[in-house]
Nucleic acid binder design. Sequence first.
DNA 1: TTGTTTGTACAGTTTTTATTGTATAAATAG
DNA 2: CTATTTATACAATAAAAACTGTACAAACAA
Lengths: 175, 175
Amino acid sequence: MKTDEEKLEEARNKITTMMANTMDLYGIPPSIGRLYATLYFSDGPMTLDELKEAMGMSKTSMSTGVRKLENDHFINKVWEKGVRKDLYEAQTDFFKSFVAFYCKMWFREIELNMEAIKKAEPILKELTNSKNLEVKEKAQKDMVKLSNAKEYYEWLKTLVISLENGEIFDFIPKK
Amino acid sequence: MKTDEEKLEEARNKITTMMANTMDLYGIPPSIGRLYATLYFSDGPMTLDELKEAMGMSKTSMSTGVRKLENDHFINKVWEKGVRKDLYEAQTDFFKSFVAFYCKMWFREIELNMEAIKKAEPILKELTNSKNLEVKEKAQKDMVKLSNAKEYYEWLKTLVISLENGEIFDFIPKK
DNA sequence: TTGTTTGTACAGTTTTTATTGTATAAATAG
DNA sequence: CTATTTATACAATAAAAACTGTACAAACAA
């Protein structure tokens, strides 16, 4: 017969394991996914030393882990009066994590793409007048591809904006 | 003075490098990102042997690479009359890639989550009657957290559906 | 049928990423 | 000011992932 403590642990373990798996989809290694789950179930913010204790891992790993999680907006650093150590708490509002994570990622993608296109397009444009007919044709085709890419990234930018200003929730309400 | 062929190569390289970087955000290693770019700029579908030649990598790597890219909906396997080898072409419609990629990923995430919650919730519910007051209180708090998670995943499911049926493009038009 | 071609499984290797322990700088306490 | 505490930089190690060559099974050709 299991104690109630053990049952609670069992229930939390099911969620923790799932979180470690799903965060893997976001480029977070499983161990750091479990670190997130630890914060998710914690009653309050935790210090690096408490996390180290809870996870049975080195403090260095906790330090790099929380930095990654904070960077991806899955956790926040918080401040508490009289507490000298850094404190971290899970972002339990998944809507906020979603918005912050994808806005950042997609914005970066858009930026990199537009930058590369801005460099490549003038070269291709020039080549559409090439004496070399094979190059000329390829350049023309490439221009079309880049034009399509730009259209997509314009759309993605609009999506990012609607996430940032919350208008997406007019279209797909939170219930 | 550069030849026009070299200029074309230069322009394509800028895009290729960018693609290798951005596909990294999607869990695709840079070399496989360049593999995608090779198909993206190719005039037509390519075989594993042609890719091997173009990339200067082993055929085995090409085989595993295209499998990953196909699985993530960045490329398609195509069939051509009289050609015995497998042929692959890039999905140049980024809208389609976006929809297919995120529908699959988010669907999987929703599924895993709902499954874990379905297992954990009954245990927690039982514990809300625990004699152990500390456990009882924790179980109650956890129930609230899971309830919020469910709300988010319901929303995400609606988003996936609106991507699948294209209704998202009523809200955010392609232009 | 037999002989080729084609894609991939598998084992071994290289490369990259994750993890740790130690050392140290910055911040705080006394 | 000096002591201590705290987080992290850094180098070393462990683990995971990417990549290759070989071997082989399935598909096709003759």
